[in-house]
Amino acid sequence: MIAPGTARALPVTEPAHVDAARRAVIRGAVAAGAGEPLLARLAVVAQEMAHNLVRHAGGGELYYQSDAAYLTLLAIDRGPGMANTAQCMGDHYSTIGTLGVGLGSIKRMSDQFDLYSLPGQGTVVLARFEMPAGVPAGLTYGALCTPYPGETVCGDAWVVHGERVLVCDGLGHGQHAQQASQRAREVFLGQGRHLPLETAMEQLHRALAATRGGAAAIAEVQAGAGQVLFCGVGNIAGMLYGEKSRGLVSCNGTVGYRVGRINTYSYPWDRHTLLIMTSDGINSRLDLSPYPGLRLKHPAVIAGVIHRDFRRLNDDATVIVART
């Protein structure tokens, strides 16, 4: 079973991959505790999303990911894209002579749905399902967390709890990196989620001493106070993206090995701001300005676009996007 929050990438480049992707999604959902009603919807949506990747995009990837609150599917491609997404959403509209009910049925059967497409650049489609026992966070968020190419486990971990976000990148990649990042996740979900950020980071530092360590950052959005707090050690990149973008400051060091002075910094926040946090498997110089309208999309769709277009292939890669 893959770690919570780690995405499984299912390549879909030919018709034979469609059923295989659907079966893999269902196996993952069963392992995550999904019941029969949810599995029935999930099977149809996974099938339609995979079919669309083959029929309309010439292939792409279907990403499956689960956390405490949601099961998430992202279909991501670099195909021809759509010039008019609203028209493509309508039932009985098709560019290739099919029945044209795919996107409409995906939307109707999902708890959350969104998509983003640019002609000539591809499409990202989100279908998200609420877990019956899940407790949604105070933030609207989306994430994509994938292992180093060729690895079966991911050395990154992330979690959203209430208004707090944690991203941890275990040093290197593979099993030992995963042990470090998952340890950080466990500690954060214990006492760390309630402590002042600097104290929580110190707790992570002590807990990761028995591992190879890593980089970590915690953000807390205090919407009522109009601010976001950020405490980072190492190369987890944080950015606030609104009318202007602003980088967030991390301290030097390696959590679990050696850190200097741990500081928490405060930045202004409003309801139009996006919080973006990435591990170093994502190019930290990411720029959303060439993507008209993307900032208004669901954070999971934004995360999918960032992962597709700014991922490096030399490490585990995690991007999380959140807004109030």
Rank of each mutant, 00 (worst) to 15 (best):
Y141Q: 03
I276S: 04
A223Q: 06
S105E: 12
Y267K: 12
L42K: 03
Y265W: 14
Y93V: 15
G224N: 12
E198G: 05
G142F: 01
P147A: 06
G102V: 02
E14S: 14
H205Y: 14
A24R: 04
Q47I: 00
G232T: 02
V319Q: 00
V228N: 05
M277W: 04
L139W: 04
S66C: 10
A40F: 09
A209S: 15
K244D: 11
G5C: 02
M201P: 01
R55T: 11
T211Y: 11
G28L: 13
Q121G: 03
V160Q: 04
S181Q: 14
A86D: 14
N263S: 13
R27G: 10
A317N: 11
M239E: 06
G190L: 08
A31T: 07
R183A: 10
G232L: 12
G58C: 08
A83P: 06
Y148W: 13
L240W: 05
E151M: 12
L99E: 15
R41A: 05
V54T: 15
V153F: 06
L10C: 00
D111C: 13
A50K: 00
A46V: 04
A184K: 03
Y141N: 00
G247R: 15
H17L: 08
A86I: 10
G155D: 09
V135D: 09
H92W: 12
H307G: 01
L171A: 13
H161T: 09
R78V: 05
Y64N: 03
A43K: 04
Q112I: 05
G213K: 09
L42Y: 14
R183Q: 15
E130F: 12
Q227P: 05
A16N: 15
G256V: 08
A216W: 03
T211C: 13
P119I: 02
G58D: 08
R285A: 14
D316Q: 09
L197R: 08
V12C: 01
H161Q: 13
F230A: 05
P147V: 11
E202V: 01
W269A: 08
R246C: 11
T72Y: 00
V255I: 15
G172L: 09
R323L: 06
A219I: 07
Q222S: 10
V18G: 02
V44Q: 11
E61V: 02
L71D: 03
R8G: 00
T140S: 13
T254H: 09
Q191H: 10
M82C: 07
V319K: 01
D67I: 00
A86V: 13
K244W: 06
G5V: 03
M131G: 01
R193S: 14
A24T: 10
V249H: 11
G162N: 12
H176N: 14
G59R: 06
V167W: 09
L274K: 02
L240Q: 05
R185N: 06
I302Y: 01
Y93D: 11
M1Y: 11
P290N: 07
P290H: 14
G234M: 09
G232N: 09
L294I: 10
D114V: 00
N263G: 02
G293S: 13
R8W: 03
I276L: 12
C88D: 12
H17M: 05
R308W: 06
A303Y: 07
R27I: 07
D316F: 01
A75Q: 04
L248I: 12
